[in-house]
Design a protein around this nucleic acid. Structure first.
Lengths: 314, 314
DNA sequence: AAAGAAATTGCACAATTGTGCAGCAATTGA
DNA sequence: TCAATTGCTGCACAATTGTGCAATTTCTTT
């Protein structure tokens, strides 16, 4: 069979299989060849592009980029939304995929850990998932921000719980204390100990990622001073994941601030099945890369621009 | 999940399945949904045209038309070549598909019945199939045309046998005799009887289709007179398949010429597994339709123009 | 708020498809 | 011409995929 004859034959088989919906067995019978041959001819047809499978992507679909990032960093999932420059809009666009994700990964009776951050706070307002009333929402970091402003850890956890139709726990300790001693005392208090203990039951967590630049929310809210950030910078820190300070490879950088912080431990966090990070913007590129490389998060929500930067920075 | 969100999700799954080649099981694990759901989402994606499967047809491909005819007349196969107006060219184009067909349907040791006709004669020169040396080629009609011209039944059979690297039998009787009595005598001769007997072993036959117009080869070669054709026409005959005269529905029309003809019987022919008819051109439309409707042939070789006429005449 | 209707889900099974392998045929090279 | 090599074939099995069904959930309607 010459090349053109062959192509025609392949397209005939491909038509019967893909367009007319016959089974390989039926095609084999009809053309008087073995079923095995049909299977192999179809293979050839696909390889030779006689058959092409096209996916009609909705506009602004980045599933390809998503899959590239998923593969590159061996993470479970990456969700990319169009970049608009406007933070609130970006968060709004993340709502749908986040709800979809929650539908899929929040198993009955499971515990959901919630960190802190303006993105987390922002996105939480769009959560809308039904049938998850037996989820327990647990803070995995002490309070940051003022109660009443709605950015406080407990508020975010409560907000999310409300939107899931479920319940939340509260943490009665600030995230950052004045000294190691005070932290130890607070952490030994049964109220706090209980919450910390709960973090072992978590199988899904949502964490915030911050850089340590002067514009970070942590500076703006007065949680840290510029001097402290400079100190962390000098140690090679590129940012934090739920106040776990990491370097560009996602390795936890030991530092003297750590001992004053109340939060889930790096080891514990790495054992959580699904860790969702929501972060985008040029400033956060390094900490995102670190978090991905170090395996601190395995589900990433970001925008197109950041995603492209991630891929280009390998 | 709203409509756009759903489409994005579908396209994500479709990408993983069709483009990245993951199994449904892997996708299910990755997205934390059941495998059954993946199967159903893929179904939906195809139905919603999120996934489109396109077959890159070689130019001048008529596989769609072929399949329409196959379905409409419940025949095994229809092969259509581009119409060029030039008979020789059309036959040449049929060579590839015919060889392909022979490769598929000629089983080891089987008998191949050969009729008569200028198309058959023409196409036989292009046959080229290897590995079929144990086929026996058998005439299924008496001699028509003069020995030596190459249009004679025996010559065509011999030619085909040579090209298959196999052997052929000869029939030592004309197709049309002067009277019923002579035919009976000839048919009772052991030489002829033996060949006729062989036709019971045939599982593939190639037959010619003729119309009964004044330009038909049968008139030109002097086998029939115009009066005889007028007579047949008056009976409702539209043409013949291997000298079986049929009406527009393919029903064998009894007539007084039949009893002078030496050929395979209509009943016998209908039992042959594969009966290949090669015919095209406006004049032959009616007889082709008859042959298809009456189940006298189940594999048709024709050209685009004729094929379109066939479909339009339903 | 309750009952009924409709849709969705996963299981278990059936159907379909893919593939390693042994055997056979074709081709090549001496 | 023969041997060696290469490629093709179908079988038998393994893997993958599709689907009826019962249970459950969700949505309607009263």
């Amino acid at each position: 069979m010459d090349s053109i004859e062959r192509k025609k034959f392949l397209s005939k088989i491909a038509r019967l299989y893909y367009l007319e919906g016959l089974t390989q067995q039926k095609i084999a019978g009809r053309l008087n060849i073995s079923r095995t041959k049909v299977s192999r001819y179809l293979d050839e047809a696909r390889k030779d592009k006689v058959v092409e499978i096209k996916i009609n992507l909705p506009k602004e679909d980045y599933s390809r980029l998503e899959y590239e990032i998923e593969k590159r960093f061996k993470i479970k999932e990456c969700i990319i939304v169009p970049a608009s420059g406007n933070k609130e809009e970006i968060l709004k666009m993340m709502a749908g995929p986040l709800n979809n994700l929650f539908e899929r990964i929040l198993a009955g009776g499971s515990y959901l850990g919630i960190g802190w951050g303006s993105s987390l706070k922002g996105i939480s307002d769009y959560i809308n998932v039904s049938g998850k009333s037996d989820i327990k929402v647990v803070p995995i970091i002490g309070g940051l921000g003022k109660i009443g402003t709605g950015v406080h850890t407990n508020s975010v956890a409560k907000n999310i719980a409300d939107r899931l139709g479920s319940i939340s726990y509260m943490i009665h300790s600030p995230a950052i204390l004045d000294s190691k001693e005070i932290r130890e005392i607070v952490e030994n208090d049964s109220n706090t100990r209980e919450i910390i203990k709960l973090s072992e039951k978590i199988d899904t967590a949502m964490v915030g990622l911050s850089d340590i630049g002067p514009d970070s929310t942590l500076i703006k809210t007065g949680c840290f001073s510029l001097e402290e950030f400079k100190y962390l910078d000098s140690l090679g820190v590129v940012g934090d994941v739920n106040l776990i300070f990491i370097d560009e490879n996602g390795k936890h950088v030991p530092n003297k601030i750590d001992e004053r912080i109340v939060r889930i431990s790096p080891d514990r966090l790495k054992k959580v099945k699904n860790v969702i990070g929501v972060a985008f913007g040029r400033r956060k590129l390094k900490v995102i890369l670190g978090a991905l490389r170090g395996g601190l998060i395995n589900i990433l929500f970001t925008d197109r621009e950041t995603a492209e930067n991630i891929i280009n920075s390998g």
